[in-house]
Amino acid sequence: MCLAIPALIESIEDKEAEAEIGGITRRISLWLTPEAKVGDYVLVHTGYAINILDEGEAEETLNLLREIAELAGE
């Protein structure tokens, strides 16, 4: 449930931001993520950022997936 997708914050004005999602931009609210900065990727649900995505964790998850996939090749 709860469709939420990653968007890149391009500019911030008070509690709102312009965010880019695969080449389209939309105004989103930062009420729930006041600490978000320009350049952060946030998860957007119904026009609100619900958290800041952790790029380091994403990379680690992908590394873990690669390791699992490599185990399969052995």
């Binding site: 469709l3 997708i5 999602i21 695969g22 080449g23 389209i24 939309r26 957007v44």
Partner: peptide, 13 residues
């Protein structure tokens, strides 16, 4: 599929 189309589709479900 163009990236913009994919992006909009993700956003709108």
């Amino acid at each position: 599929v163009r990236e913009e189309v994919l992006g909009a589709c993700e956003m709108l479900g």
